[in-house]
Nucleic acid binder design. Structure first.
Lengths: 246, 246
DNA sequence: CATCCCAAAGTTGTCTGACAACTTGAGGTA
DNA sequence: TACCTCAAGTTGTCAGACAACTTTGGGATG
């Protein structure tokens, strides 16, 4: 635990986050005052305040001028889409056992939408990883991942197996900073149906996701077909708070 | 513009956010140094730093110790689900004209799932608002909103018309602090199909959302059936950044 | 006795100044 | 040319002070 290289305010925020999620402070209760909490943690009040600012932005805390800092009882979601994670994590979060079948890596020309995301010409060869993900043996997700072949070639992809693409990219110094997922309802094509062992026309929820580094460079594009109802896909939505025009 | 009551750091953050989205600083470029920018804005460096912390948490900026603060070229999403907004905003964000037809308010017993979200017994009477939302005349969303009848009675709901439920609740001192949306693919029932003027069995994307106050009290439950393809539904997903176990 | 008012204590918000930690680039040196 | 060193510039953290706001409780008032 603990990434030593990050700044102090992030370490404090992580520390407090863990305590909050461990239920050390009950929902709605008031935290110790800033000077007191800062003394307890052995940091300055300004660093503590920075950390609290982060947690407030996450919706875990709420500060009230002159009154105190309070714990909001934010529901803890098993799988909050606003956090970026892989399919394996999603499956594991529901208590099932993640697995992979029918993995196949290749070098293929980029389809138009994928090429557009990468900002390259359609047809440029890319490394591609096709997988069918299982949850305790049941086939639930068909995924396709595209990636520049300079970064990961097909043999490296097929060596991944169950591992996370994010970890592989991070090891190359290309940590994924954020992704943008576009969600749409679809029905299973003949091929997808066959791979997922369901009837053609079955309801799916499809995520098209573009992952980028902190510099905005697109390093990974994914297409995931989820069996409808296999997971509960949720999003924590901040706001609107007080309405501006009033 | 400008919500006068919020704290200075939020006003600064909003100011900077607008400038960033207006493209004043190009993606990847470095911001002026903190002391300089603070002078320009007429605020102290500490307040400016708090504001930057907020924008960094949002993924708009990235600070590098000793080097500078840089603009992340985060794609600007028309409709980021991790922000909570109403259907009208969603429609307006795509440049279309939001409207409402077939609005109908009533007092109805709570279905099981809605009652569960409110933490009340199924069958308890609630105020309900049924609407069909239009985008430049086209029927695109069927929505149902449930709410405690002590907070808003059916007559108040029907008086809303096109207005935002969030604004109405905020006026009652019950500002919505966050919501949790669950997303699933569905097909149109006979009734929904008739109301949306599409064929039964048409693909829909359905959002079941529970909105709460800062204290965690559930004040609004909504069910929205969106016509597939009517909007591009996207989520900005933070992380994973550097992988912990490395 | 009930009610209102107000002052004091406690809390978060902001400011100022200073120094530490780190990065970058220019210049000198081999 | 290649490498090293150092100075300048940047963000990170600290400390202390005061402002702004909320809450509480006691005292004056009816």
């Amino acid at each position: 635990m603990s990434t030593a290289r990050s700044s102090l305010r992030h370490r404090i925020a992580d520390e407090l986050r863990e305590r909050l999620e461990a239920g050390e402070f009950s929902a709605g209760s008031r935290l110790p005052s800033e000077p007191q909490l800062a003394r307890t943690l052995g940091v300055s009040r300004s660093s503590l305040r920075s950390a609290i600012t982060l947690l407030e932005a996450d919706g875990l805390l709420r500060r009230m001028h002159g009154s105190g800092t309070f714990v909001t009882d934010r529901p803890l979601l098993h799988n909050d889409l606003s956090q970026n994670f892989g399919v394996s994590d999603l499956i594991a979060a529901t208590g099932l056992d993640p697995g992979t079948v029918a993995a196949r890596a290749a070098r293929e020309p980029a389809p138009a939408d994928v090429a557009g995301a990468f900002g390259i010409e359609a047809g440029t060869p890319l490394s591609v990883l096709h997988r069918v993900r299982t949850a305790s043996g049941r086939r639930v997700v068909e995924s396709v991942d595209w990636c520049r072949e300079e970064l990961l070639d097909p043999s490296e992809l097929s060596a991944l197996g169950d591992g996370s693409l994010y970890a592989a990219l991070s090891a190359q110094g290309l940590a994924v900073h954020h992704g943008v997922a576009t969600i749409s309802p679809t029905v299973a094509s003949a091929e997808t149906a066959k791979r997922l062992r369901v009837a053609p026309g079955s309801l799916l929820i499809t995520l098209f996701q573009v992952d980028s580094t902190v510099l905005g460079e697109v390093v990974l594009v994914s297409l995931e077909h989820h069996l409808a109802g296999a997971f509960q896909i949720s999003v924590y939505r901040r706001g609107p708070g007080e309405i501006a025009g009033e």
